[in-house]
């Protein structure tokens, strides 16, 4: 009798825990998913060496190697080009989620501040704009998010979210569809829609090769497809370190010149 009672209690507890998990999963909001994804993709601090490869319209490949430093969950970002020699030493500083951008030109020892409209410009001819590179909190602050039906994408069970630009926002895309991996909260696919035409898909970002590094799920490769120009740009993480203590001075004019 006791055995049956124990079995019943265990069954009840299992069902309760399972039903709680299901309830929790079903009740996760679009905002919570976007917040968790943003936190996953923007750890407190990071230092990485990355390679960017551009496939141009003519089918040529161009490669760039750079160091990137990030602090405050992506609120401050500094990128320093290492290769090719054409841009060697050129440094980009983005503060306030990419709202303030400075570029340092070492050959002239000159720092130039860019206005926010320059965020639309391509980064060294790539399919990433300054806006794509900075703006860690852009999805949260500049878009309204709605949770759609779950979907399997690139082999991952995903939450599917529709992000619509807030009326007062100056974001560069009218809407965004993002598929977020349910296990890692890494965005697997992001579709960016044209600024003027919400039906026209302009770019698609695919994140692959997810690895657990220092307890943080990290996509080691990002591929941005430009659907209008038929070009693509890949960014690969060569080295990454999350256990760093980056000084605030790095994210200043002083840091750009070092």
């Amino acid at each position: 009798m006791f055995k049956y009672l124990l079995g019943f209690i265990l069954l009840f507890l299992t069902c309760a825990i399972y039903s709680h998990l299901v309830w929790a999963e079903d009740n996760i909001t679009a905002g919570e998913i976007i917040n968790t994804m943003t936190q996953t993709m923007n750890p407190e601090q990071s230092e990485a060496k990355m390679k960017m490869t551009i496939m141009t319209t003519s089918g040529e490949e161009r490669s760039f190697l750079y160091h990137t430093y990030s602090k405050g969950r992506g609120k401050k970002t500094l990128m320093k080009y290492l290769e090719p020699s054409r841009v060697k030493g050129q440094t980009i500083l983005m503060l306030n989620d990419g709202d303030d951008i400075w570029i340092y030109f070492p050959k002239r020892n000159h720092v130039r501040k860019l206005a926010s409209h320059a965020r639309r410009q391509k980064l060294e001819g790539s399919d990433f704009s300054y806006e794509d590179m900075g703006g860690s909190n852009t999805f949260v602050e500049k878009y309204e998010s709605v949770l759609l039906e779950d979907e399997k994408k690139e082999g991952h069970q995903c939450y599917k979210l529709k992000l619509t630009r807030k009326p007062e926002s100056d974001a560069g895309y009218s809407r965004i569809i993002v598929w977020v991996d349910k296990k890692t909260f890494v965005p697997i696919v992001i579709d960016y829609y044209h600024d003027k035409d919400p039906e026209l898909r302009e770019k698609q970002l695919i994140c692959t090769d997810i690895e657990l590094i220092d307890g943080i799920y990290t996509p080691m490769k990002f591929t941005m497809y430009n659907k209008l120009d038929d070009t693509k740009t890949t960014m690969e993480i060569i080295e990454i370190n999350y256990n760093v203590d980056l000084p605030d001075a790095l994210f200043t004019e002083e840091g750009m010149k070092q």
């Binding site: 020892n109 501040k113 000084p247 001075a249």
Partner: peptide
């Protein structure tokens, strides 16, 4: 020469001012 919050540069160098 760099130390935190301070830099000294001596020699023939690029100088540019203005926006």
């Amino acid at each position: 020469l760099n130390v935190p919050k301070f830099a000294l540069m001596i020699g023939k160098q690029q100088i540019s001012f203005g926006t």
